[in-house]
Amino acid sequence: MTIELKGMNTSHERAGSSFSGYPMLLVLLILLALVGWHFAEHFPEGPDGFSPGLFVTLIGLEAFAFLFVLCGFFMIQPNQAAVLTLFGAYKGTERKEGLRWVWPWIMRAKISVRAHNVHSERVKINELRGNPIEIACNVVWRVADTAQASFDVDDYKQFVNIQIEAGLRTVGSRHPYDDLDGEEVTLRGSGEQVNRELLEELNDRMKAAGIIVDEAGLTHLAYAPEIASAMLRRQQAEAVIAARAKLVIGAVGMVEDALTKLSQDGIVDLDNERRATMVSNLMVVLCGEREAQPVVNAGTLYQ
């Protein structure tokens, strides 16, 4: 499923322009020292005869410069980025770690590019055969494009949570819960394939927000409580039928091999009636749930 954003321009991340904060920190300390020196030497009228007006003007300029430099500082942690905007226009993303500095009128919005781990709530859906089931998943995601995450969706974290639930519903409804014949892809028996489909589905849905999903997998899968007991009995019945079918097929093969071996080795020559009797006895022995009780026949089948 591809999400097409019609009528809206897609943002793309580009490198932002900022300066190292350490030289500007030195400038800040120098301005602070100047303010302190002027207070010590010329407050309110120093030996050199500074007028109060000139003193206030000088201190005001130095204080303004101090605040100007101070307002441009920001810090970026490892695996963090800062989206820079100027009067609403995107000016790039700064990913360099440490103390940075930009012009004070440039706005900085920090965004984490670390891996996020989300465990979804249990969602009740109908699987392929219409049976209600409960399903949940665990998703590891991260922001790959900070511009898309900031400007193309309103709240990218809420967007991720909603798309996880939607993707989980979509993938869960594609397959049956179980299939004893092993001919279909099932939610319970084909975990790797279902997880791969979920990963592809979520990546396709979240690329509109610049999000990449690294891992996705089911963590909970069960029939809904209202049908759980009935489906358990059904599973048990299907398992018994499948087991008996395999038992009968195996028994037929063993009987066939036994009769063939007896005939080839010339141990006994059986007519059709004796052969049918032996087949019946062997099938009872091989397919019966209880141990066979031997019967000694003192006569023949015809007496």
Score class of each variant (00 low, 15 high):
I249H: 10
G172M: 03
G72K: 03
F50D: 06
V213P: 05
G72P: 03
L61F: 15
E183R: 15
L86T: 12
G16A: 02
E289D: 10
N117Y: 12
M206H: 06
L262V: 06
K6A: 13
L32I: 00
I133T: 04
S263E: 11
G299F: 07
G210T: 00
K157H: 10
A228Q: 11
L262I: 12
T146L: 12
G98C: 07
G88S: 09
R114E: 13
S263N: 11
G167R: 08
F43R: 12
R188H: 08
H175C: 06
E121R: 10
E238W: 02
I125H: 01
T186I: 09
M283H: 01
P47R: 14
T219Q: 03
A224L: 04
T170I: 14
E127W: 03
H119P: 04
T260S: 13
E4I: 15
F159Q: 11
M254S: 10
E197G: 02
E215S: 14
I125F: 01
H12R: 13
G53A: 10
A251E: 04
G21Q: 05
V35C: 14
G299A: 08
K6V: 13
E200H: 12
L286W: 01
L187S: 00
H175P: 01
G16E: 00
H12K: 13
S190C: 01
N297L: 15
D271K: 09
G182C: 01
R129F: 13
E13V: 12
D214W: 04
L232Y: 11
G299P: 02
N281S: 12
K261W: 11
S51Y: 00
D178H: 05
A109W: 14
R122F: 08
I211K: 06
V255G: 03
Q158H: 05
N117Q: 14
G92S: 13
T10Y: 10
S263R: 15
R188P: 07
I59W: 01
G16K: 00
L32A: 00
S18F: 08
F19R: 08
A292V: 14
W101D: 02
R188N: 11
G189P: 00
R275P: 02
I249P: 00
L221R: 00
G167S: 11
V35M: 15
Q158I: 04
S173F: 02
Q303N: 13
Q148P: 03
V295N: 05
D152K: 11
R114W: 07
T85P: 05
G266W: 07
E226A: 08
T146K: 05
V185L: 09
W101K: 06
S263V: 05
R122K: 15
K6Y: 15
R188S: 14
Q163P: 04
I3T: 15
T260P: 02
P104K: 13
H38S: 03
L202C: 09
H42K: 12
E134P: 00
T93K: 06
E121L: 08
P23Y: 01
M254L: 14
A239M: 09
G250K: 08
E184A: 03
V248R: 02
G72T: 02
P23R: 02
D269G: 06
L301R: 06
I111W: 12
R95L: 13
L26S: 06
